[in-house]
Amino acid sequence: MSVHSALDLFVRKLCQRSCLTEEEKGAILALEGREAEIPPHQDIVRPGELTDFSCLVVSGMAARFGQLPDGLRQITAVYIPGDMCDLYSLMLPKVEWALQALSARLTIIRVPHQQLKDLVQAYPAVAEAFWRDCVADASILSQWVVNVGRRDARKRTAHLFCELSLRIEQAGLGSRHSFQVLAIQSQLADALGMTPVHMNRVMRALRQDNLLIVQGRDVQVPDWDALAAVGGFEGGYLEMNQSWRQAH
């Protein structure tokens, strides 16, 4: 996927939540940045690092994680192509959480904060759209906390795959029934607060019930509604259908 395609996806995602004019969309598409290939497990932004750019995922998957003083980490968000993972860094350029490559083929664009600042100063509707994107990110995090704290392993796993399937479908990168997850199972287990062997066991049970079939990176969901019912999944928290909202 090219840099321009990734910006297209970013605009597409923003427009699912905000109304933007052609001029505003064009201004976002004109953003430029430095492309970088990040090896798997490598940090894109380290905890506490001061940044002057935000990262747009071009291809592959990235994750946000929190880290304890002894180095133990927990994934708190996953990002797919078209996500500006740390848009918040425009306002908070130094945070204690950080970003890491999940997949073997993660490509990002580092978009300088100055460009983003100039953009939002010139176009207040873009500032609103960015703000709404950050709120949606917080909404997803809030749902993840409930998922980890209140759902059992089977429901938790079903819920995560439903979320990923919808996000990937909305980005135009697959359908909710068939898509790719460019992360290894132990990383997804980490995101769910489970151990990898436990997650393997849950995945096997979901496969036996013909709810979720994972082969390598390829995921098949034969009956999406049934998987959503298992996970108690309701997609409203993704805030993906807010385009009715006027940008004023």
Binding site: I184, Q185, S186, P196, V197, N200, R201, R204, A205
Partner: peptide, 16 residues
């Protein structure tokens, strides 16, 4: 590879 043998046998295909 961490292979599980309990009420279901689950093979760790990826390994770590």
């Amino acid at each position: 590879h961490l292979n599980l043998f309990n009420d279901a046998d689950v093979w760790d295909e990826e390994g770590r």
